[in-house]
Design a protein around this nucleic acid. Structure first.
Lengths: 69, 69
DNA sequence: TTAATTTTACCGCTATAACAGTAATTTTAA
DNA sequence: TTAAAATTACTGTTATAGCGGTAAAATTAA
């Protein structure tokens, strides 16, 4: 899954939240939630993190270096 | 690994790049690279993505929903 | 169908991230 | 040790993300 916008949307729906409710829970504006779901990459990392936290989504970074040592 | 700043720094070092070189390769300012390595979360998602791309680091989002279906 | 809800879209305003420049500090190499 | 390179830190300016308000589509429910 590379589509963060769709991922957020799916999780939001599963949680039974509207964009506005998710925005309020994450402490951000509704416009930003909309932007995230539209894969607008100019949003702040902190705002994405706030949304992911509400939806219980974890972030992982992977590379050849992280695999071994 | 949750420390994105340290992760970026390690990969940058491994690639033999200075912050300025990484910034130029990623097409962003040196200040932003510095901020990312300092785990400043107010940076733009697009700028983080640009840095990760240069360093060949992939992003993965995980949750109970992404595991099964 | 109609009404209610939600999403999408656009608008200014404000707050601030991004930036280059500079300088001080720290690290590395000679 | 000294010199060179890199990192950290700060500053002022500029560009723009974030925001609420509003309204139009789209979706859902009755």
């Amino acid at each position: 899954m590379v589509d963060l916008g769709l991922l957020v949307k799916k999780h939001r729906k599963k949680a039974g939240l509207t964009q506005l409710e998710l925005a309020n829970l994450a402490g951000i504006g509704k416009t930003t939630v909309f932007d995230i779901e539209k894969n607008k990459e100019t949003v702040r990392w902190s705002n994405i993190l706030a949304v992911l936290q509400v939806l219980n989504i974890e972030v992982e970074f992977k590379s050849p270096l992280t695999e071994n040592g």
